[in-house]
């Protein structure tokens, strides 16, 4: 099952390598990973998505918690949550394709962020499934380049992850 684990950790050099090292060392998989400082610059917030069963995710969260620099973490997929991913996609767009690309982008509420005579670059945010669906809407031959941020997320409602 896909899990989204959100980790609050000390914004210190080496902290990220410990998290990644843990996953490599223990043979856990990382699907996506995103990390940046929070409003408190001494803390970083790292979000990772992984494919893991119940038992494995329990080990993953325990092992992450054991890292000295990890302050707190939450498995967002355990409760109601919001998740978003950002994608930039560069598409071939010439002739009749141009209108088609624009129309599909509108349907998905994408934004055209760069235009040339032969390309459109579209920015799209949403859940991973939505981004996947958008990609599938174009023939492979017209997709020139894709970059995705990986999943970020928060719990719904009052629940927050603070130190």
């Amino acid at each position: 099952m896909r899990r989204i684990i959100s980790v609050l950790m000390e914004n210190e050099p080496g902290a990220l390598s410990r998290v990644i090292g843990l996953f490599a060392q223990r043979n856990y998989n990382i699907e996506t990973l995103t990390v940046a400082p929070t409003e408190d610059s001494t803390l970083s917030r790292l979000t990772l998505s992984t494919l893991a069963g119940d038992e494995q995710v329990e080990q993953i969260t325990k092992q992450l918690n054991k890292l000295i620099e990890v302050v707190k973490l939450v498995d967002l997929t355990e409760g109601e949550h919001i998740e978003r991913e950002l994608m930039l996609i560069k598409l071939k767009a010439t002739g009749a394709q141009r209108a088609e690309v624009k129309r599909t982008s509108d349907i998905f509420r994408g934004q055209v962020v760069d235009v040339t005579q032969s390309t459109y670059t579209i920015q799209l945010t949403g859940t991973t499934e939505k981004l996947d669906a958008f990609l599938r809407a174009f023939p492979e031959s017209s997709v020139m380049e894709v970059v995705r941020s990986g999943v970020s997320g928060l719990s719904r409602g009052e629940k927050v992850l603070t130190p």
């Binding site: 050099p13 080496g14 390598s17 410990r18 090292g21 060392q25 000295i68």
Partner: peptide, 14 residues
């Protein structure tokens, strides 16, 4: 050294 020892220490500092 911090990198080499990372998987076999409880923690490390540079």
């Amino acid at each position: 050294m911090v990198g080499v020892s990372r998987p076999i220490v409880k923690h490390s500092y540079l």
